[in-house]
């Protein structure tokens, strides 16, 4: 076990971090938009849309991400109709399939977080805003959204970090992320643990940095709580 090997492995894994972080960032970003839509359907009060949202959350939270990923990547491409359709240029690429599956899955979890945060906005605040004569959109922008955002943050950071971990699954659909490069180095060099240990350290540090960033954002967004303790 020499330093040169460790360093070379580290450099190759850091290079692969780009794929891991791309899948992560894109799926969290698009997942948030899907989640916003699903949450709107879920609490909007229109029955058929509410059922659809419930079904969406049930399916994407109830089944493992791995099987969702395989349905999209291996399942859809087995239909000649899909291969002939306009979606094929998008779906033929493993990166797109992986990002799509991750986004659809995290949207279901994020949507539940959003719903909980909305439910946690105190009624008195909404009543007071209405009493002042705020319009619906102003009420959402000034009162509901800021309060809900703060309340959602802790659970949201957990979900975002669990998505970093979930992206390791894309190694099973031919993508060269940190996980699959670590396994490749392991297979090529027959060094059993070092590549996996270095990969683990990289994931751990990334997750730690994201967790710190969220703690920072939380403090930044709650100056009223900080002032009291200072």
């Amino acid at each position: 076990m020499d330093i040169a090997f460790i360093w070379a492995t580290f450099l190759r894994l850091i290079a692969a971090l780009q794929v891991t972080l791309s899948v992560w960032a894109l799926s969290v970003f698009f997942g948030a938009f899907i989640a916003a839509g699903v949450t709107w359907m879920r609490v909007g009060g229109i029955r058929p849309l509410e059922w659809f949202a419930r079904a969406y959350i049930f399916v994407f939270r109830g089944a493992p991400l791995l099987i969702q990923l395989f349905i999209v990547y291996y399942g859809l491409s087995s239909f000649p109709a899909v291969r002939a359709s306009i979606f094929w240029p998008f779906l033929r690429d493993a990166f797109n399939c992986a990002t799509l599956s991750c986004a659809l899955c995290t949207a279901a979890y994020q949507s539940e977080i959003f719903r909980g945060a909305l439910a946690g906005v105190p009624n008195g605040q909404i009543e007071a805003a209405r009493a002042c004569g705020m319009s619906k959109s102003l009420l959402f922008r000034r009162i509901i959204f800021p309060i809900a955002l703060r309340q959602a943050l802790p659970a949201y950071s957990t979900e975002v970090i669990s998505m970093v971990k979930a992206t390791a699954l894309v190694s099973l659909v031919t993508l060269w992320d940190v996980m699959s490069v670590a396994l490749k180095i392991r297979n090529d060099t027959l060094v059993t643990y070092t590549p996996l240990l270095i990969a683990g350290a990289i994931y751990f540090v990334v997750n730690y940095m994201i967790a710190r960033a969220f703690i920072f954002i939380e403090q930044w967004l709650s100056p009223h709580l900080r002032a009291r303790s200072a």
């Binding site: 970090i161 970093v164 971990k165 979930a166 992206t167 390791a168 699954l169 190694s171 996980m179 670590a182 396994l183 059993t192 643990y193 996996l196 990969a199 683990g200 994931y203 751990f204 997750n207 730690y208």
Partner: peptide
């Protein structure tokens, strides 16, 4: 803290090989 910060798949490989 360690096992909450590592990808589940990595833990599976590690436990399996280890």
């Amino acid at each position: 803290a360690l096992f909450r910060g590592l990808p589940e798949l990595l833990v599976v490989y590690f436990v399996y090989f280890g």
